[in-house]
Structures are given as C-alpha cells and as structure tokens.
Amino acid sequence: MLVVGSITFLLIHVTPGDPAAVMLGSEATPAQVARLRQQLGLNDPLLVQYPNWLLDVVRLDFGESFFLDRPVRAAIRDRVVPTLQLTVYASLVALAISIPAGIIAALKRNSLIDRTLMLLALAGSAIADFFLGILLILLFAVTLRWLPSGGYIPILDDPIGHVRSMLLPSLALGVSIAGLPARLIRSTMLDVLHEDYIRTAYAKGLAPATIATTHALRNALLPAVTVFGATIGDLLGGAIVVETVFSLPGMGQLVVNSIDRRDFPVIQGVVMVSAAAYLLVNLLTDVLYLYLDPRLRHVRR
C-alpha cells in the first residue's frame, strides 16, 4: 500500500498539468493561478506535501477534492456503491455463464457443443466490452425499447428501475469476463475427470450429473477461483469502459475524470482504495481456497 501510494503520489506530481490552471480557466492571470495554488497547498515542496499526505492517509483522511466541492472520502463513498453493485451483478452473470459452460464443454469434449461454447467464450473475452455494450443498447434500448440506454437509479429509490438500469451493463461486463473462467473450468474439469476417484464414482454407479457437479466441480473450480478473485479485484477499481458507456457514476468514471482534471487528492484516494480492495479480495480468495480445498488446511496443520 505504501509503495502504491508513493508511486501514485510521485507520478501525478511529476506529470505536467496544473489543477489550478484547469480550475480557473484560460483567462486567469498568473497571479490568480498562484493564489489558488497557494490555497490548494500546491506550492509546498513535494518533500513537505508527501509526509503531510501520508499522515493524513494513515488517518484515512484523503483530503478535499479540488473540483467536487467535497472531501475525497465522500466522493469515493458516493461512487463505490454503483461500482460494487455492478461488480456483484457482473460476477453473478459471469458465474452463471462460465460454470455451466465449462462443465458442459468438458463433459461433451470435442463435440460440436464444446466447440461452440468455447468459441463463444473466446468471442466473449475478445469482444471489446464497449462494443458489446453499444450493441446491447442498440438492441434493447433503441430497437426494442425494453430497457433504458444508460443512467443509474439507486436501488432504494426504485428497485425495479435499478434492476432495469443495471441489467445491460452487468450483462456486457459479465459476458466479457466469463470467457477466461469458462475455459479454465473446462480444462481443469477435463484433468479432474481423468482422475481415479472419478472413475471410482462412475464405478459406484453415481449419476454422471452428480459426479460432475459435486465431485469433479469442486476440484475444477480452484484455478477459476483465483482468476475470478483477480478479476473482481480489478472491477472494484471501477469498470471504466462499461461505466462510461452506460453512464454509471462509479469509481471508474471518478478516476478518469479526476485524471483529466488533475484532481490530485481524488486520484490518490481512489488508487489507495482500489489497491486496498484488491488486496482484500485476494485475501478473501485465499480464505475461500482454504474452504474449497481441505487439503490445504491439512497441510497447515
């Protein structure tokens, strides 16, 4: 975290572009810019700014946004909800697609179904999510007029509207992240299906469906969990493209806007929070690993 924060701090301060000048607009006099820089504390040497900032961060105080008229913490708190929701929904979509697709493809290995599913998986991860997003908008919003073309409705304001507004972005994002886990599940399933204990299970006369879902899947899921954890960690930082296409006020949009405006405190805050979220998700992934794979627990003991 210290490394991430320090690198971010250094990078944004050595990058050209002056937030004071951006704020004031073009006709600002040098004197006005200088006054604002003073107010914003940008005139202090980096060696003073850096420890100050570090101390604040330790106290979880990310400072005040230059542009948003509010503390960075409040700005992040507002944006984190749509991002979290999108991450959860998209993950559900991805799970709902990748697990069945992986299992079926493995069971019907080298059949037409397998080939089709894996081609789709490849297409899903290869297609740019903004393009998929636009296609979905054109189909469901413009042509069929079933769903809104974009915008965000908080779940407490209008639950149905919320679901309608989140459906297309979740689908676009979910499909684009489902490809890799689907392929992983398929290949590990194939490995697992050749294990002796599976043959034993067949010999015992268990139904193939039971074998696939209870005996094989649990082992086959492990690598997919790792990949999934990493993906979710990424998404928590904000799905920039999907948020932009569907006009969702999430972390991705926040950070992109802030970089454009050189809103230093927000950039730093978002990066720190994203890094923390990433670490947290990875930790959770490891814990989940222990739960899914009893062998690891035994090793520790």
């Binding site: 919003a141 413009v142 007029r145 809104p148 974009g150 915008g151 932009t244 296409v245 006009s247």
Partner: peptide, 18 residues
Amino acid sequence: FVPVPNEASRIAGMQAGD
C-alpha cells in the same frame, strides 16, 4: 441534465427517446 460521457450512448439514448 444527465451526464452521458460516451458519444454513441448519447446518440442511442436520443434514438431510444431517453
């Protein structure tokens, strides 16, 4: 006033009557 940063989304939203 609704911020719609993506141009294609703005146009699609116009066509959809949003």
